[in-house]
């Protein structure tokens, strides 16, 4: 559906991390995504924008196969990460999700201590040889999520006792701790106040240096602030995809223009 603007032409030197071709997603008889083709770059923040129900979260949840947990969901087509189709029979969704982290709309720390929240992923994937190495992983992850200084003295208190913004950064630390190659964020700031939002946005800017970040957002200001690439979804189709600057200043499609100027949404 999207036009001739090839992303690699625009950015050049960066590698393609995720490449989707002819993706169709159905929930029961209802088609949620139609003929989606997109290529997402490594070490780049890509924003998915669009009105509610346009399929942007659905596509995000295809990238780590979270839709597998929905009984009625069916995915067709090909989504490849580093050239490997993640819907191939041989791919283990559990290993895929260790490589593709996810942060949700609402902070969802486990009812465990801060330390246990962060160490959970490394523990189940056997990333640490001993306690010392686990401590290091936890500290690195919490520093990476700009939370270390706030929680270093209370690592063994429950994660649910933190403020909303801290909880969300804890969830980011938890996702980062498994050393993912892609981080998916599903409206990560929608439950946060402006200060917590700007902290998370700064964090996204740092995370981009290490891996590919895909963020779904309802805030066009946020998309413009944090992303280098933007994809606009409408009614289950990818309408326009390109450099964020271009999308917000010179949208090619009339629907994109209508959305970013607030006429649909």
């Amino acid at each position: 559906m999207y036009d001739t603007n090839r992303p690699e032409a625009a950015v050049g030197q960066q590698d393609i991390k995720i490449s989707a071709s002819d993706v169709q997603v159905f929930y029961g008889p209802k088609q949620a995504i139609k003929d989606l083709n997109v290529e997402i770059l490594d070490k780049t923040v890509t924003a998915f924008i669009g009105p509610s129900g346009c399929g942007k979260s659905t596509f995000l949840r295809c990238i780590n196969r979270m839709n597998d947990t929905v009984d009625t969901a069916r995915v067709e087509g090909r989504i490849a990460i580093d050239g490997q189709n993640i819907y191939d029979r041989g791919v283990d969704p559990v290993q895929l999700r260790a490589k593709v982290g996810m942060v949700f709309q609402k902070p969802n720390p486990f009812p465990k201590s801060i330390y246990d929240n962060v160490s959970y992923g490394p523990k189940i994937h056997g990333l640490a040889r001993d306690k010392a190495q686990m401590d290091e992983i936890v500290e690195t992850a919490l520093r990476g999520a700009a939370l270390w200084n706030e929680v270093k003295d209370r690592l063994h208190e429950p994660g649910t006792g933190l403020s909303g913004g801290q909880q969300q950064r804890l969830c980011i630390a938890r996702a980062v701790a498994t050393a993912p190659e892609v981080l998916l964020m599903d409206e990560p700031c929608s439950a946060l106040d402006p200060i917590a939002t700007s902290q998370v946005e700064e964090l996204i800017e740092q995370l981009r240096t290490r891996f590919s970040v895909v963020i779904v957002t309802h805030s066009m200001q946020q998309a413009a602030r944090v992303s280098q690439k933007t994809a606009f979804f409408h009614l289950g189709s990818l309408v326009e995809y390109g450099d964020t600057n271009d999308i917000f200043t010179r949208p090619r499609d009339s629907r994109t223009e209508a959305y970013i100027s607030g006429r649909i949404g």
């Binding site: 947990t69 559990v94 949700f104 486990f110 189940i124 994937h125 498994t178």
Partner: peptide, 26 residues
């Protein structure tokens, strides 16, 4: 809450790990 289940699965926990480590304690 469903979000806890999703959180564990998105980290790459298997179903039984999700039940045992996250849902059951909660």
């Amino acid at each position: 809450p469903r979000s806890l289940r999703d959180g564990a699965i998105a980290l790459g926990a298997t179903r039984s790990e999700t039940v045992l480590n996250v849902l059951f304690p909660a």
